[in-house]
């Protein structure tokens, strides 16, 4: 069966650290960084990149539209 492997790119300078994406991710990929961006927000990043399936849930709910999603099909 084909397995999906995904990756997200967060525009961390535009991220406002609202955590809405973190809650929406079914695979606990996203966490909020200890560090802050130039605006002072703790930004989102992919803590467990390996779990990402590229479902785009995080990007779809991100109010600021700062997540881009990529996905490849892996055949096993």
């Amino acid at each position: 069966m084909a397995k999906m492997k995904g990756a997200i790119v967060v525009d961390i300078e535009k991220c406002k650290g609202c955590e809405v994406c973190r809650v929406a991710c079914p695979n606990d990929v996203i966490a909020i960084a200890q560090e802050v961006n130039h605006k002072g927000y703790h930004y989102a990043y992919q803590e467990h990149q390996e779990n990402c399936v590229g479902c785009a849930n995080c990007a779809v709910v991100c109010p600021d539209g700062v997540i881009t999603v990529y996905k490849v099909k892996l055949s096993d």
């Binding site: 492997k5 995904g6 990756a7 790119v9 990007a59 700062v66 999603v69 990529y70 996905k71 490849v72």
Partner: peptide, 17 residues
């Protein structure tokens, strides 16, 4: 699979309009 191999234009599934 390396993340760099996934993040390629041809694999894009969602992007801000």
């Amino acid at each position: 699979m390396d993340i760099k191999d996934i993040i390629k234009p041809e694999n894009l599934v969602y992007q801000k309009t």
